[in-house]
């Protein structure tokens, strides 16, 4: 359990190392939602584009986590990120089941968005119940909207990750390559961390949104690198998975997508990690090589 600070006004950062995406939370949500929805429908796009959409979706989710957790949840920041991921997995299952309707095999699956919308509805219901005075009475402003956004962002993120690894949103392909192989465990936990870690790591009275966002992008970079590695290995394989299914995949397209995603992920991670640590060191009270602690009494 962590101590959550009182809500403070955001101050502009002092040094040049800032991550300028001059968007407030609503604009960010709209842009990220639309871009991620378009990318998730067209699965034929290169993996790097999906990676960019993934970054936007994570930034959106992170904003929702941040504005909810600012008021103190009672059990720490991580719970809300896990909640979003749990919703996301259920939504993704439904979206994938619906995907075959109106789809162009391997190119576009517009019906998956129904899963996203349904999950938004469930999130909204959960938010209303949690915030309602007569039910759980969490008394967090705009919790309803945040939970709805978290459900939608979580679903979009899981769907994007599935689409990156399999290259399509065909239910059977996803089940064979993602769910039965256990890759979903990696996706589940990294989605949790991408959503909860930025705000959890930057928590404190002098937290600011720009720094938190850098941390978010950095983690998505890491996730992209891992997914790229997964794609490279899975690009040329035919294996028997116990008694479950026999899967054969072989595609040079996937190999090159994997390599490009790995490079993209590592580059994004390296750039933003350096930027984040530098920003922290600049904006901390002071950064010293070593030193004694302040004596009290």
């Amino acid at each position: 359990m962590t101590v959550t600070p009182a809500v403070v006004e955001e101050e502009p950062t002092k040094k040049g190392l800032s991550f300028k995406l001059p968007l407030d939370e609503t604009e960010m949500g709209l842009i990220a939602g639309i871009v991620a929805a378009i990318v998730v429908v067209f699965t034929g796009l290169p993996a790097v584009i999906k990676g960019i959409a993934l970054i936007l979706a994570f930034l959106w989710g992170m904003d929702s986590v941040r504005k909810t957790s600012k008021y103190g949840l009672g059990t720490g920041v991580p719970s809300i990120g896990v909640l979003a991921t749990g919703f996301g997995v259920v939504g993704a299952l439904v979206g994938l089941a619906l995907a075959k309707y109106g789809s162009i095999e391997g190119v576009a699956y517009p019906a998956v968005l129904v899963g996203v919308i349904l999950m938004g509805v469930i999130g909204l219901v959960a938010g209303i119940l949690s915030n309602h005075e007569k039910v759980i009475a969490m008394k967090i402003p705009k919790l309803e909207r945040a939970m709805m956004e978290l459900g939608m962002a979580g679903t979009l993120i899981i769907l994007l990750e599935c689409s990156i690894v399999t290259g399509s949103l065909n239910f059977n392909a996803v089940v064979n390559q993602v769910l039965n192989t256990g890759l979903i465990a990696l996706m589940f936990i990294f989605t949790c961390f991408g959503l909860l870690h930025p705000y959890n790591a930057c928590l404190g009275p002098d937290e600011n949104r720009e720094r938190t966002r850098m941390c978010s992008v950095e983690i998505v970079g890491l996730l992209c690198a891992l997914l790229g590695f997964v794609m490279i290995i899975l690009s040329s394989f035919s294996w028997e998975l116990g008694s479950i299914a026999s899967v054969t995949i072989s595609s040079p397209w996937k190999l090159w997508n994997g390599v490009s995603l790995l490079i993209f992920g590592l580059a994004v991670w390296a750039y933003f990690f350096r930027m984040f640590i530098k920003a922290c060191m600049d904006e901390a009270y002071e950064t010293v090589g070593t030193g004694m602690i302040k004596t009290i009494e």
Partner: peptide
Amino acid sequence: IGALAIFVPNAIIAAYN
């Protein structure tokens, strides 16, 4: 993973309560 995904929101709502 589906059971986990449904279990988690319920446990978290309980924790908020």
